[in-house]
């Protein structure tokens, strides 16, 4: 979904634009006209358990935002769309039929001088159905990953996080994990390798060269992606699933903040052998 396409279709009935950012205040400083805000931390996460909202809460959220089950939802956000991709992935757990990502996200829209507003959107309430979340298809839990060891795993964090070096730098606090390193057998492909400088995704042939030729993955492979809390890996999940048509990619949202704190799970520290 390009910014030019969205600019022409902003007023389409049946289309909702959703902004999801890392920074909870950013939407309030200005947003795409008509866009609603969905915050990953306060609205998509369960407030108590480390999990996503359940079917009832998701339906209530969608109804309040004015999104119907047949609405086409276009996501965009800051940080090269990490959180937009993450929100899209969470919506996918509920099987919302038509979900798209604005290529280049908020930064590209703004850089092109397209309209922004602080006016509140006016979307009438809907009656979104209660649809059970289906975690099995695209979400991996820690035990799933333990059972998956030996199959394709992609660690999309920076090389320093992957090798465990980051947790050892002088004067830096521990970033929420007691151990540094990566899940054994994981290949390190930082999320940004799927993106251009302007935050748009690379072309299909470039993505094929990266994931299929360089990494040797096949579209019917069983693949698990992870990062620190599952947001950057949602970006890679989107690229593999929706741009390359991979059939079974799961995002391990527990990611390093779970694995790096779990007792007796295996960890590798050394850099992977160069291929």
């Amino acid at each position: 979904m390009t910014t030019a396409w969205l600019a022409e279709h902003l007023d389409d009935p049946g289309l909702a634009v959703v902004e999801s950012d890392e920074d909870i205040l950013l939407y309030d400083t200005g947003h795409i006209p008509g866009a609603v805000h969905v915050d990953w931390h306060t609205e998509l996460n369960d407030p108590v358990t480390r999990d996503y909202v359940d079917a009832e809460r998701f339906a209530a959220l969608m109804s309040a935002k004015g999104i119907a089950r047949d609405t086409t939802v276009v996501f965009y956000g800051d940080k090269a769309n990490w959180w937009a991709a993450y929100a899209l992935w969470v919506f996918s757990l509920f099987g919302h039929p038509d979900l798209r990502l604005l290529d280049g996200g908020r930064a590209k829209w703004e850089a092109e001088g397209r309209p922004m507003t602080t006016d509140a959107p006016d979307r009438p309430r809907t009656d979104y159905p209660v649809v059970e979340r289906d975690d099995a298809r695209i979400r991996a839990f820690r035990d799933d990953v333990l059972a998956h060891l030996g199959k394709p795993l992609i660690d999309v964090r920076s090389p320093d996080e992957y090798t465990g070096k980051l947790l050892h730098m002088a004067n830096y606090p521990q970033e929420g994990a007691l151990r540094g390193g990566h899940i054994p057998g994981a290949k390190n492909v930082p999320w940004a390798r799927a993106a251009n400088e302007d935050g748009t995704f690379k072309s299909r042939s470039e993505l094929e060269a990266l994931y299929q030729q360089e990494l040797g993955l096949k579209p019917d492979d069983d693949v698990v992606v992870y990062c620190r809390i599952g947001e950057r890996s949602s970006h890679t999940w989107f690229a593999l699933t929706h741009l390359l048509g991979f059939e079974k990619v799961r995002n391990y949202d527990g990611s390093w903040t779970e694995w790096g704190n779990s007792v007796r799970v295996p960890i590798e520290r050394e850099a992977e052998p160069s291929t």
């Binding site: 920074d23 909870i24 950013l26 400083t29 908020r106 930064a107």
Partner: peptide, 9 residues
């Protein structure tokens, strides 16, 4: 940066 209002806050 302006695009990081929480950090600025």
């Amino acid at each position: 940066p302006a695009e990081s209002p929480t950090t600025r806050g």
